[in-house]
């Protein structure tokens, strides 16, 4: 648990980082509570809340019935009246059962009440494919919530951000949805000690480059970075931007990169159509950076199909390192 990185920094897994964030927040603020299905002694479907019930008790680490609509709504009502609930959906797919409370209530209450109310709830949503869980447990639906004013929608790609984003979300007075990638839970990385906030709405240039801009989120950041390293051997210098926040979206970081490279590719795990890539492409096309585009914009998203079960199909359904690498190569070589 206290392994050290090469740089001498403490190393934690993504799920350990999230758990540490929750523990720090609960120590510091008695109004922070956890809610969700099987988050107590079971430790959550992905073991993210493991042992927290022993530290903070059942009153603050509350197993809910299998009632996503009711559970999310209770979290909204509690947030509205003074608690800071963190509600864990077992899978992000199950948020659809609670759409009413997330979209009609949490997102809109402040506005409907003319600023007289605040709903500081945090929803955690394990997300993404690659686990063989097929169509109803593998989706990436974060873009749906990008369409809802009043929500904030985050996607941490690293353990450091997973912790910093959760702490930032708890400090935020508005509802925040954090989409955690299931394949990242065991990924290890340096994580600072203590409390710190990863700014909401700020993208990060994970790799500077000059030839092509790759905007990615969550696990796609790692796949894009790996593809970029392979391309570097061929003399293609890709810039990789970790989007981090879907709503609000960091326009300026993306535009600055496009002005530099003139070539843009957006990589995301949600279905390609009407997704994050559409929003970013349109945003660039509407901006002054349009005049810097020297090639068509490319989107790499999931196939137009539910996430399949067969492992080869599942792999083929979403962008992988090799597909990102090939697309970026064509873009950089002016073949698109």
């Amino acid at each position: 648990m206290n392994a050290m990185s090469d740089a001498g920094l403490r190393v934690l897994s993504y799920s350990e980082a999230i758990r540490e964030a929750m523990a720090i927040a609960m120590e510091a603020d008695p109004t922070v509570i956890l809610m969700g299905e099987d988050i107590g002694v079971y430790g959550g479907a992905f073991q993210v809340t493991l042992d927290l019930v022993d530290r903070f008790g059942k009153d603050r680490v509350m197993d809910t019935p299998i009632s996503e609509l009711g559970g999310a709504g209770v979290a909204v009502g509690a947030a509205l009246t003074g608690l800071k609930p963190i509600y864990e959906f077992q899978f992000s797919d199950f948020a659809m059962l609670a759409m009413e409370q997330i979209v009609n209530q949490a997102a809109k209450l402040r506005y409907m009440l003319g600023g007289e109310a605040s709903v500081p709830v945090v929803f955690r949503l394990p997300s993404g494919s690659g686990t063989g869980a097929a169509a109803q447990h593998s989706q990436s639906i974060e873009a749906w919530f990008g369409h809802v004013p009043g929500l904030k929608v985050l996607q941490p790609a690293t353990p450091e951000d997973a912790k910093g984003m959760l702490l930032a979300a708890l400090a935020d007075p508005d509802p925040v949805m954090i989409f955690e990638h299931k394949l990242l839970y065991k990924m290890k990385g340096p994580v600072p000690e203590g409390s710190y906030h990863t700014p909401i709405g700020k993208a990060l240039v994970r790799r500077a480059g000059t030839d092509v801009t790759i905007v990615a989120g969550s696990i796609m950041v790692h796949r894009a970075l790996e593809a970029a390293e392979k391309l570097a051997a061929e003399g293609i210098n890709a810039e990789v931007i970790d989007l981090r926040s879907i709503r609000p979206i960091d326009h300026e970081t993306i535009l600055a990169s496009v002005r530099k490279t003139g070539r843009l590719m957006v990589v995301y795990e949600g279905v390609k159509a009407f997704g994050v890539g559409a929003e970013i492409s349109a945003m660039v096309a509407e901006s002054d950076a349009f005049d810097y585009l020297d090639a068509p914009i490319l989107r790499l998203g999931a196939a137009d199909a539910p996430v399949p079960y067969n492992p080869d199909l599942e792999r083929a359904a979403v962008p992988q390192v090799d597909t990102i690498e090939a697309a970026a190569r064509r873009l950089a070589r002016r073949e698109v």
């Binding site: 509570i33 009711g70 209770v74 509205l80 009246t81 003074g82 009413e100 409370q101």
Partner: peptide, 29 residues
């Protein structure tokens, strides 16, 4: 909000889970 009225609701049944959440706050605090 000042008189404890958390609001009307345009969704039939929308206020039910919210009321339970408000009661949870009272109990927790």
């Amino acid at each position: 909000v000042r008189t404890g009225n958390l609001g009307a609701n345009g969704i039939v049944g929308g206020g039910l889970p919210i009321a339970v959440g408000a009661a949870l706050t009272a109990k927790r605090l």
